[in-house]
Each structure stands twice: as C-alpha cells, then as structure tokens.
C-alpha cells in the first residue's frame, strides 16, 4: 500500500505540484502499479549463491578486455548539442536566455 505521505514526498523529489484533489487518485493509481509489481515477486526465486545454480544456457558475462579505443573528438561529441559552449555541455541559469 502506498500512503499519501509517500506520494507527497515523491512529488516533492520530482518537483511536481500535486493538490489535495489529485492526491486521492494519485495514491490509488500508484498503489495499483505497486500491487502489479508485487505480483512478479511471487514468481519462484533463484538461489544465486552457488555456481551450480546458474543454468548452463543463462546469458552471462558479456565482458570486454581493458583496451583503449580512440574516443570521439570534442567537436564530434558536442555536434548534436544545441547548447554547447567553450567545449562544454552548457546549462544556463534558470530563466537566462541562451
């Protein structure tokens, strides 16, 4: 169960405004989502503690060697960035025109 206090806290963290009239609906809606996620938890759990418990055909260990590959240039990296400045990604102070 999700409480109204939790919804208010999440709204605060997400910088969302939520008023009293919406709170009821939002709380019920989020509870429903969490209930659905809990359903997944009912599925059998694997014990991953021992090596033998990982099935042979499991997709594991896509590992890369520690070898340096050439990076993109500064220009290439910033090519699609609309607000680049002096070689950096740039975020203007809120309200300031770029």
């Amino acid at each position: 169960m999700v409480t109204k206090e939790e919804v208010l806290k999440i709204a605060k963290l997400a910088s969302l405004e939520i008023d009293e009239s919406e709170l009821e609906e939002a709380t019920a809606g989020m509870s429903e989502i969490i209930e659905f996620a809990n359903k997944i938890n009912e599925a059998a759990e694997f014990n991953f503690g021992a090596e033998a418990d990982v099935p042979d055909d499991a997709l594991v260990n896509a590992i890369r060697a520690d070898e340096v590959v050439e990076s993109f240039t500064n220009e290439e990296i910033l090519k699609n960035c609309k607000t680049a400045r002096d070689g950096f990604f740039y975020i203007a102070k809120s309200g300031r025109k770029i």
């Binding site: 340096v68 590959v69 990076s71 240039t73 500064n74 990296i77 070689g87 950096f88 990604f89």
Partner: peptide, 16 residues
C-alpha cells in the same frame, strides 16, 4: 566503453 580513464586533458575529449 574503451575511452581512456586518463586524468586531465581537454574537456569532453575522452568520450564516446
């Protein structure tokens, strides 16, 4: 990724 972890250097030049 294979980008270098070297300290310093030009900004946004060890990226992909």
């Amino acid at each position: 990724c294979g980008c270098t972890t070297e300290f310093g250097g030009e900004q946004n030049a060890h990226c992909c």
